[in-house]
Write a protein that binds this DNA or RNA. Sequence first.
DNA 1: CGGAATCCGCGTAGATACTG
DNA 2: CAGTATCTACGCGGATTCCG
Lengths: 115, 115
Amino acid sequence: MNCPVRHVLDRFGDKWSVLILIMLDEKGTLRFNALHHTIPDISQKMLTVTLRTLEADGLITRKIYPEIPPRVEYQLTEMGSSLIPYIDGLAKWALQNMPHILRSRDQYNNKVAFN
Amino acid sequence: MNCPVRHVLDRFGDKWSVLILIMLDEKGTLRFNALHHTIPDISQKMLTVTLRTLEADGLITRKIYPEIPPRVEYQLTEMGSSLIPYIDGLAKWALQNMPHILRSRDQYNNKVAFN
DNA sequence: CGGAATCCGCGTAGATACTG
DNA sequence: CAGTATCTACGCGGATTCCG
């Protein structure tokens, strides 16, 4: 039961963590609002919460510039970067297979509906 | 926003789907109760629900033998099997990095607690 | 044996308002 | 600009009971 897959799902199965890592990989360093613009449909609260968790886990860094107005920059750590290829692998798989899945799901639902 | 990663997370971010796929890959064909024994801490309901969804999506097959007592066997489809390597990739990463993550998290929490 | 049906608690996450 | 604080609701998933 201490299967590593459990850990992956417990940690990254949430709605936003992986997405934020992807964006930081794509764009490099990002400020809070810039990050928010790349993921418009996340709430401010969830963005903050998820960023703090990612920071706590050592997957991203949070650099605060003591200016006014304040500036905070987020960036992948080495460990965070090392996860990206595996996520990209999954994304590639999804790109190829998601259409099949959706069609299969529709067929299944129609079949059930007619019984 | 139609990022493939979103699809992956929406579909496999749930608590049990990926785990069931792993088990079916490891053990090959499995009956309902056999599968339940390999994942003891899933409820009967969630096992059923998750299996149905995986079947609907074309990731596993569900073969019913009209016997008494009934027998139902679950098995990966080709598409289901094709996902396994990518999950294994993530698992490998987790095995290497999860300890770091947990230690980092502890340190972070202690730091916060002392402020 | 392999489910279906129902009820319900809890946690995640959204909305809103406020702040250094 | 980059958050915090609070309140709330929705739905996932657990427990239980019953069935062919």
